[in-house]
Nucleic acid binder design. Structure first.
Length: 932
RNA sequence: GCUGGAGUGGUGGAAUUGGUAUACACGUACGACUCAAAAUCGUAUGGCGCAAGCCUUGAGGGUUCAAGUCCCUCCUCCAGCACCA
């Protein structure tokens, strides 16, 4: 009779006992340490759904595993509770944000505790606790003292919905606010800004040393957006100089105009020189008033205005070129001005086409490697279009079985178009006229088999149009060489794509500039240099500077809202902004009557005069407090450090504890990881420079968490009414089942839909574990002992790699086996310990049921015997001519001859060995392949 | 468009890194127990075929004794970035 499996009977009991015995309490010790960290939650009013605990279950298993393998484990939990959502929630429900946060935290904590997590609650932190944000403010003061926090009056993003300034990162890609969806405007305001850009290079470089998923690293690189290039100065006719940033200084000779962003200061400065000022003014107003969305809508259609009366000089060749303003150039990136090279940039090309600006090729695409003793040649290629039949005439060579354009070398004084028309007439007999070029000149290097020589060819393709429908007679010699063939557009594309690698036929229908690297041409003394060489050489010649620029903006750090850390600054008329002295921290967030946003660009704190008015710490005169608060990301940018030493009121973290615990060994999270990780890494590196932390990176290893979708495949949300509450699942099947199921669903990083049916599998597994003691036998047989040790190895390896699904599957296989074969009590105890991190309640219940009086979670994790995980006899597949025909069970040390002999005894194999054995591939313990 | 990642049964997914493809679980079918149902247990379960056998890891080529795994071309999906010079 199966023992009843009623998790409700014992889960609560053991949770209480663990808390009472302080089982999961952590202190620094002689043991090796492991710091396992979850991205701490934002305690929203909605509570948890089953997707939220997934990461916490994983870290719980990992930390229990580490504890049982002799590590001192730090696995803490806390609350990220400042910020807009909490405040908006509070305003909506007409409660004080603090009250709302307290309530939400209590709810979250209760929901977490039901799942039996091993958090050390003595280390709980809350970012809204003055004892905590004292140190957030302290970090800000240090940033300020080092000149890394400064005031700026640049126009910034303003969200009319949230009534606050936002960082660039707070916007969705369509220019709306990520919190409320309002369209974000630009507003000039006083802001605190952090110089995150100063750390961009270090954040980029140190990425390589981290064990993080590639896509997260890539997202970080993207975000920082470093690009290498040069700054080059252009002289204007007004004697001013415009500095442009370009990644392609090798194309400088191809610059045919300059573009300034509409906000560029030189435009206003040279107002008097601009003869079409009204038009210019109108354009500037139009583009600055354009909502971000409109600006994105017309990404294809370029707009702009020429600055009449002003020209610039190309420093490479002293050519005079026009200057435009256009909003495809962003004021906030690079220098807010560009040199336009329409021949080699898609955007400049589109703009130049629209405004009829010359397009000058200065780089040739190169096919093949330069060959020794190559004979140079210049030639034109032609494809002939017949508008009547809508077909294209090309030549077909029987000798090479290939289609090709009409082709011939340039003769004296000819250009490509003339050659194309002449050669086409000679070779095909058709009279044609030149329509346009198809792409630029290209350079090809190849071996010419017909002439037995190496060729270095410069060529350009032409589109011709037929004049007479009927061809004239062609010489017999030409007829032998090639045959004219008419192809439809589709045929042309498919034949050329298949047969020719050096003609990009799609250029015929979709003309676009060549934007790749190649060899430079039309550039005086730099001709024939590679793009790479020319970049440096040309930059040097014109006195430019090789440099790098970044996409990442400095971090707009102030919010005009109530619910955040007050920025610890005092504004004094005489001394300017002064940091609040460290002994006066924290600057406590004062109580206010109205914490709704004022909408005036000032925080609600500005209304509390007796808080705002203070004295200057430097000169003692009357001064005013800064009333802006910090963004939500502030508190989460360093919280992991506080867990190491959360009661310290002398320092953010003590040196000893930091040195023991840092860095975070495994960090687990998903969602807006990229933002948080950028900010946290920035602060960490700053704290490293201050000597507060001893590691250059905060998070050694990052495991990305895949979400759980609702059963309908959509995101779980109130809106769809498809939320599954973990409390309900625990009531239904118990916490252990929920834990095992979520880990068994699939690979940890995958996003997978919840399945109520699938839950049953986990439940059945635990029921079978619960009934295992019925299968006790007295003497262990060797086979099941081996299986146990293989299972131990698999589970250990898999937990270490966060492959919980396969770890559980291995344990299921083991249970399936011993239900048939039986197991000894020793094996049973080993298995319980193996399962303990996954199902802490059930294993504890069964452990105590065996008569033990100390928690299973304080036991040592099972270790496997090396000799028992390697089989000395295995079943391997036997192939004949690479196809599996049967299998043999054979000693791993058996010789090839023994293996073949054994294989021949198997009928299904023998029947396929019909001839002489030509070759045998035998890999012991892997495969036997007989080739006949 | 660019970058990164991935395509395996009806479903979630395994596969010692080039060596018996489809482990484990769900679902389904049949059987046992039951007056009955649920639960539980047992058997079967990639496709075609009575069978021997043949086919099968998004599609098509290639390398190899051997390819889900490596190489080339293409298609699809997910994620991030997106006028970033």
């Amino acid at each position: 009779m199966n023992k009843k499996f009623n998790p409700q009977d014992f889960e609560k009991k053991w949770q209480a006992k663990w808390a009472e015995d302080n089982v999961y309490h952590t202190t620094e010790s002689k043991k090796p340490k492991t710091f396992v960290l979850d991205m701490f939650p934002y305690p929203s009013g909605e509570g948890l759904h089953v997707g939220h605990p997934k990461g916490y279950i994983a870290t719980d298993i990992y930390s229990r595993f580490k504890r049982m393998t002799g590590h001192e484990v730090l696995h803490p939990m806390g609350w990220d509770a400042f910020g807009l959502p909490a405040e908006n929630f509070a305003i909506k429900h007409k409660v004080h944000p603090r009250v709302a946060v307290e309530k939400n935290v209590a709810r979250f904590k209760e929901q977490l505790q039901v799942l039996g997590f091993d958090y050390d609650w003595e280390r709980e932190i809350n970012t809204t606790d003055p004892e905590y944000y004292k140190w957030t403010q302290w970090i800000f003061v240090q940033l300020f003292k080092k000149g890394l926090a400064y005031e700026s009056h640049e126009p910034i993003n303003w969200c009319p919905g949230c009534q606050t300034g936002l960082a660039n990162e707070d916007l969705e890609s369509d220019g709306t606010c990520e919190r409320c969806g309002s369209l974000v405007e630009k507003r000039p305001m006083r802001q605190w800004v952090l110089k995150i850009r100063s750390y961009a290079d270090r954040m980029l470089e140190d990425l390589d040393s981290l064990k993080w998923p590639e896509h997260i690293k890539e997202a970080q690189r993207n975000w920082i957006g470093r690009s290498e290039g040069a700054e080059i100065d252009f002289k204007l006719s007004t004697k001013d100089r415009v500095t442009v940033f370009t990644t392609r200084p090798d194309t400088l000779f191809g610059v045919t105009y300059l573009v300034l962003a509409p906000e560029h200061p030189l435009i206003q400065k040279n107002k008097s020189q601009v003869s079409n000022w009204d038009e210019v003014m109108q354009y500037i107003e139009l583009s600055t008033n354009k909502k971000e969305q409109d600006r994105l809508d017309d990404t294809k259609e370029k707009t702009g205005v020429k600055l009449e009366g002003i020209t610039a000089t190309n420093p490479a060749n002293n050519e005079e070129i026009p200057v435009y303003i256009a909003d495809y150039v962003l004021a906030s990136y690079g220098t807010g001005a560009i040199m336009a090279v329409p021949a080699h940039d898609e955007r400049d090309y589109a703009f130049a086409e629209k405004f009829n600006i010359p397009i000058k090729q200065v780089v040739r695409k190169v096919f093949g490697e330069t060959l020794p003793n190559a004979i140079p040649r210049v030639a034109a290629g032609a494809i002939v279009y017949n508008p009547k039949t809508e077909k294209y005439l090309v030549s077909f060579s029987h000798e090479f079985n290939k289609h090709s354009p009409w082709f011939g070398g340039l003769e004296d004084g000819e250009d490509f178009s003339e050659t194309a028309v002449r050669e086409t007439l000679e070779e095909s007999g058709y009279k044609t006229k030149f329509i346009r070029y198809i792409g630029d000149e290209v350079e090809s290097h190849f071996y010419h088999p017909g002439k037995d020589l190496n060729r270095s060819l410069i060529s350009r393709m032409c589109l011709l149009e037929i004049i007479d429908q009927e061809p004239i007679t062609v010489s017999e010699e030409e007829k032998k060489k090639q045959e004219p063939v008419w192809l439809t557009k589709e045929e042309l594309v498919s034949k050329f794509t298949e047969e020719r690698d050096s003609y990009d036929v799609s250029m015929l229908f979709d003309p676009r500039p060549f934007t790749g690297m190649g060899n430079v041409c039309n550039s005086d003394e730099f001709d024939d240099l590679s793009s790479k060489e020319a970049k440096v050489a040309i930059t040097e010649k014109v006195g430019g500077r090789m440099t790098a620029t970044y996409k990442i903006r400095d971090w707009v750090f102030s919010r005009q809202r109530y619910w955040g850390e007050p920025i610890p600054i005092i504004h004094c008329e005489k001394c300017g902004p002064v940091a609040v002295p460290e002994d006066q921290l924290p600057v406590v967030l004062p109580e206010v009557e109205h914490y709704e946003p004022t909408g005036t660009g000032e925080s609600p704190l500005a209304n509390i005069t007796d808080w705002v008015n203070t004295t200057c710490p430097e000169c003692g005169e009357g001064a005013k407090r800064e009333t802006n608060t910090m963004p939500q990301w502030a508190g989460s940018s360093w919280y992991y450090l506080r867990f190491m030493d959360n009661h310290n009121n002398q320092a953010l973290v003590s040196k000893e504890k930091e040195q023991y615990w840092a860095p975070v060994d495994v960090y687990v999270g998903g969602d807006h990881a990229v933002r948080h990780l950028i900010y946290a890494r920035f602060w960490h590196k700053f704290l490293y420079d201050l000597g507060v932390v001893s590691t250059i990176e905060p998070f050694q290893r990052l495991e990305f968490l895949g979400f759980i979708l609702a059963e309908d495949g959509r995101k779980m949300s109130k809106r769809w009414g498809n939320i599954i509450n973990p409390d309900d699942i625990v009531k239904l099947v118990g916490a252990d089942t929920l834990r095992v199921y979520e880990m068994f669903m699939g690979p940890f990083e995958n996003t997978i839909a919840w399945s109520q049916d699938g839950l049953v599998g986990a439940r059945r597994f635990l029921e079978r574990v619960n009934g295992l003691s019925e299968h006790f036998i007295d003497n262990e047989n060797e086979l099941s002992e081996r299986q146990l040790h293989k299972t131990i190895k698999k589970v250990c390896d898999d937990i270490e790699e966060f492959k919980f699904n396969t770890a559980i599957s291995a344990m299921m296989v083991y249970v399936n086996t011993v239900e048939k074969e039986g197991l000894t009590q020793t094996a049973y105890e080993t298995f319980l310990k193996l399962l303990a991190p996954f199902a802490p309640h059930l294993t504890e219940e069964l452990w105590y049921g065996l008569g033990y009086t100390k928690s299973i979670h304080l036991e040592s994790y099972p270790k496997y015997e090396q000799t028992l995980v390697v089989d000395n006899e295995v079943t391997i597949g036997v192939q004949v001519n690479g196809r599996v025909r049967g299998n043999i069970t054979i000693s791993t040390s058996a010789s090839e001859d023994e293996a073949i002999a054994l294989a021949k005894t198997v009928t299904s194999i023998k029947s396929h060995i019909t001839g002489n054995i030509k070759k045998v591939i035998y890999k012991p313990a892997k495969i036997l392949n007989i080739v006949i």
